[in-house]
Computed example of a mutant assay.
Amino acid sequence: MAAKQSAKAEAWVIFDRIVSLAAPGGVHSNPWIKNADGQLRFEPDYNTLVKLLGVPLYLKAGTQSGVPALALDVWLSYELRRAGFDSDQAWPRPVHPRILPAAVASLLKALPRKIRDAVADRVNNQPSIPDVTSSSASILGKNYLKQVDVIITDWATGPELLISTKRMDSSYGKNAPNRIEESYGDAKNLRLRHPLAALGFVFGLRSDILQKEPKTADWLFDLLAKLGREDDAYHATCLVLMEYSDEAAIPDTGEERPPEGVPEPGPELVREEDAPAPVPESEVDREIAQLPKVTIVEEKIPEDLTPDRFLAAMVTRVLAATPVNMHEEARRRRASPELR
């Protein structure tokens, strides 16, 4: 009997369709904009973000499922592709498997067609293949392995970009200190082993914290900004402030998500029920049309935590730390902004 699809598998089907519609035929818009005064900035695709953020609300997928934070991961990976990084470079990939080493992707492209089709069929249809594919990536820091949510890496370069994401939609005073404490430890662990990698942190937060717990909000915003200014922490931090109705909210069970802890050495396998099953596009489009409305409250996000500033900092740092003959499309896009 086939395993029942998990909330994560259902979410992946909708996530993939949203980003596919945002980049028809795999062609992504250029996020770089130059203002009349000559200022270069990164313009995020908030229309795609709010759709992705609506998916866990539509599925009523709680924190324990991992789907709420996954919406941020999918968006960040999509924005990196808009910036010019290849779909096989920025993980999670826009198709299953989400983690596929660059060497394996290159091998698939180089194989004779008959062999390539057979190997690709196995890679694409297995939930996971030990030491080859998985749904998430763990990177060795100074002292321990750490699961990283969004990543650009290759065996020849090592990690070039590492972004951790967390999300909190309720129980702010209870959960916020734990999230911040985890983030400080994760930053130090990764930064000490990979000082040249662009290291970032994105925090998704429901905007009702501003009314329910304003002092907690002030405290949290202050610490998030400091996380991006310390010499041994993140190079940049980001706040995504989300607004949606109480009717769309996921019921608060009072349970925190399970702690990530320190991953055991070895490959992370995908459960069969977490692998997305094919669904007709028309059916997925109907689900997308029913997604709850989510708004990004841009005006309440502190200037040093805005998504546009964060994404510009991450991309610029990757390009600054690599030779000019690497990431050529990302360099071309940054050098050819749209004039506004």
Rank of each mutant, 00 (worst) to 15 (best):
A23N: 04
F85D: 14
A90E: 08
T253P: 07
V279Q: 15
I33E: 10
L190K: 03
V315N: 06
T165W: 00
N124P: 03
S65D: 09
S207Q: 13
S171V: 02
H194M: 02
W155V: 14
R167Q: 12
T165H: 00
C238H: 00
R286P: 01
W32R: 01
E283Y: 03
A277M: 15
E287I: 05
A320F: 14
P251F: 07
A120E: 13
G228R: 07
L57F: 07
F203Y: 03
Y184I: 04
A275L: 06
L111T: 13
E160S: 10
E256V: 03
W32P: 06
V148I: 11
P130H: 00
K300N: 13
P44T: 04
R179D: 11
K188E: 13
R122T: 05
Q39N: 00
H96K: 07
P280M: 04
S29M: 11
T322Y: 04
D131V: 04
Y46G: 00
D285I: 04
S135A: 14
E329V: 03
R286I: 01
P94W: 02
T237F: 02
G62F: 09
E247W: 08
T237G: 07
L199H: 01
H235L: 01
N175W: 07
Q126I: 02
M168T: 04
K166W: 03
L224I: 04
A225N: 02
A103Y: 07
T153S: 11
P56C: 03
R334Q: 13
S6V: 15
L49P: 12
E247V: 12
T133M: 12
V318P: 10
L205R: 05
L100Y: 05
V132S: 06
A289S: 11
E43I: 05
R206W: 05
D304L: 15
I180N: 00
M314Y: 03
R271N: 15
Q64C: 07
L291R: 08
T216M: 09
V19Y: 01
S170E: 10
A2D: 10
L269I: 03
S183N: 02
L161Y: 02
V19H: 08
P24Y: 09
D274S: 13
N189F: 08
V318L: 03
E299W: 12
A90H: 06
Y144E: 14
